[in-house]
Design a protein around this nucleic acid. Structure first.
Length: 507
RNA sequence: GGCCCGUUCGUCUAGUGGUUAGGACUCAUGGUUUUCAUCCAUGCAACAGGGGUUCGAUCCCCCUACGGGCUGCCA
């Protein structure tokens, strides 16, 4: 078993045919019941539909997906919708939409946990029959009191095992009395150990676990029970999830063992924290995938950044596409400590991606975000617009918003900027520029350069002093595309309109 | 309280029983550029603390502190 764990931690299936002599990489043996599952691993992402897809959930999904793709396995989706109070159908759609947007497509049909209720009941019944679980007639109030008492006495609270070995007659009597009961797993003596792909060997004493409840007094099964049954039914070979489940894993292993099911391999991923080092929550700026989409990050950017939280590629490379991630991902490079989400770095990653994207792809991204973008304008014109501003943008929304200056005749000028930019001299410069434009013969870069040189001479100033007032008049912002590119793309008429408009504002 | 997990620059991280503890983001400074952005260069900045083991510990062991998770008839 250890060999397999080493195997999955360090190597990819294709590298480990058994012919290699790679360290930690042993060939499969047919005797292991999980061997076939391991060649084609089955993993799952199992969100609760109680909110939008969280950024941490997205990373969990991503790592599952990467592992499945890398090893020719299946990536499954299970919706844990058994909490009727909080689960909502609209969230199921939100989550699946977000996963689709990210490109984390799942194999096979979505499993709705709520549909497995009969199966869960069946398994509870089986455990009762097998004697691996028992009916506990301790009432909630009694339990609460006992807990309180031992707290007062500063003792460690343990659930009393009063009903562990109740005779059938007594049991029947209690039921006839109308006593309600929960079903508890009969935790065996000893210890439970497993080898986490990230955290290594984890061992707990079973006595610290208590006979935990697998079915409530209303008959509904509890999480730690259900998750094990469902994972087993779905033939999940590797359970990859957040490390908030680390401490629950031994309980789940006891369920597998009680039901004589194959225990999967576990890999727990460190949490993602906000800038205050607290668990990412609604207190933080943005926590769900949808928000980042709206902020203008492409799915590839999100995937790239998320992959770097809690994992490192064992090289200096930081910009990855999906295929590169699939090829590089390794559990042994996964961090044990939680990682802080840093939007600055996200922006940098985004910028790197944008600079490598084609104008056409960028335009598609812009349209996906805002279908009305550049309405009524020529495709070729829009292409030029994007070409001019793409290298100056960190996000898709930045491109979209900066492109606005190319979409109207008249601009809304910022009065502070105008008063800072214009004085008698700079007003004289744009006036001269305006008349030079009127008499321009060839609408070309060379011609424009000549005009600028003349203006510099006439007014005895450096190019910056010519450029700045013209730029502000034409674009309304003190930065942006090269001035000649700007003028050429806007065209003579719009330039004239904007110069006139500026003059009317400042004079 | 008990159990489990973690702790290298502000952030993401690399790293080894002997290193000037490396890279990336951020920030600062300088350079290139018609502005901005890019790009380049330089700089700031870390081994949580205390004990051991050792000739020598950031690295191995123990303790403490801090942080997180679990401890529920939530998932």
């Amino acid at each position: 078993m250890i060999n397999y764990i080493e195997f999955w931690r360090h190597g990819r299936a294709v590298e480990c045919t058994g012919l290699e002599n790679q360290q930690g990489c042993k060939p499969f043996r047919g005797s292991n019941p999980l061997a076939s599952a391991m060649k084609n691993p089955r993993v799952r992402f199992a969100p609760s539909p109680t909110g939008y897809l969280h950024i941490g959930g997205a990373r969990t999904a991503l790592f599952n997906w990467l592992f499945a793709k890398q090893n020719n396995g299946k990536f499954l989706l299970r919706i844990e919708d058994t909490d009727l109070e909080r689960s909502k159908d609209e969230y199921i759609d939100q989550i699946t939409d977000a996963l689709k947007w990210l490109g984390l497509n799942w194999d096979e049909d979505i499993v709705l946990q709520s549909k497995n209720n009969d199966r869960h009941q069946e398994m509870v019944a089986k455990m009762l029959k097998d004697g691996t679980a028992y009916k506990c007639f301790l009432q909630k109030e009694e339990l609460d009191n006992l807990r309180k008492e031992s707290e007062q006495r500063k003792e460690i609270f343990r659930v009393p095992q009063t009903f562990r070995n109740l005779s059938p007659e007594k049991e029947k009597a209690l039921i006839e009395e109308g006593k309600s009961f929960t079903v508890r797993l009969k935790v065996p003596k000893g210890e439970t150990e497993f080898n986490d792909l990230v955290y290594g060997s984890i061992k707990v004493q079973n006595k610290d676990l208590d006979d935990f409840i697998i079915a409530r007094s209303d008959g509904s099964p509890t999480y730690n029970f259900v998750v094990a049954v469902d994972d087993a039914d779905m033939k999940i070979s590797h359970v990859i999830r957040g490390d908030d489940h680390l401490a629950n894993t031994p309980k789940q292993i006891l369920v597998y063992k009680a039901l004589e099911l194959d225990v999967p391999i576990f890999a727990h991923l460190p949490m993602i924290l906000g800038s205050d080092k607290k668990r990412l929550s609604k207190r933080h700026a943005a926590t769900n995938v949808q928000e980042y989409k709206e902020k203008g990050f492409t799915s590839k950017v999100i995937l790239n950044y998320l992959s770097l939280l809690g994992w490192n590629p064992d090289s200096d490379k930081e910009i990855f596409d999906e295929n590169e991630l699939i090829n590089s991902f390794q559990f042994k490079q996964v961090q044990k400590k939680s990682a802080v989400f840093d939007e600055k770095k996200l922006l940098w990653i985004s910028q790197q991606h944008l600079s490598e994207m084609s104008v056409r792809d960028l335009m598609n991204e812009i349209y996906a975000l805002n279908s009305g973008w550049g309405d009524g304008l020529e495709w070729e014109y829009l292409k030029e617009v994007v070409k001019l501003i793409k290298d100056r943008s960190k996000t898709i929304t930045e491109i979209a918003s900066m492109s606005e200056i190319f979409f109207t005749d008249k601009l809304d000028y910022d009065s502070d900027l105008l008063s800072k930019t214009y004085n008698d001299k700079s007003i004289a410069i744009i006036k001269d520029f305006k008349s030079a434009l009127t008499s321009i013969e060839n609408w070309s870069r060379v011609e424009l350069e000549n005009i600028f040189e003349n203006l510099m001479e006439q007014h005895d100033v450096a190019i910056g002093q010519v450029m700045k007032p013209i730029r502000v008049a034409l674009s309304g912002i003190p930065f942006g595309p090269g001035i000649f590119d700007l003028i050429l793309l806007l065209g003579k008429d719009i330039c004239q309109i904007r110069l006139r408009h500026t003059l009317s504002e400042v004079e």
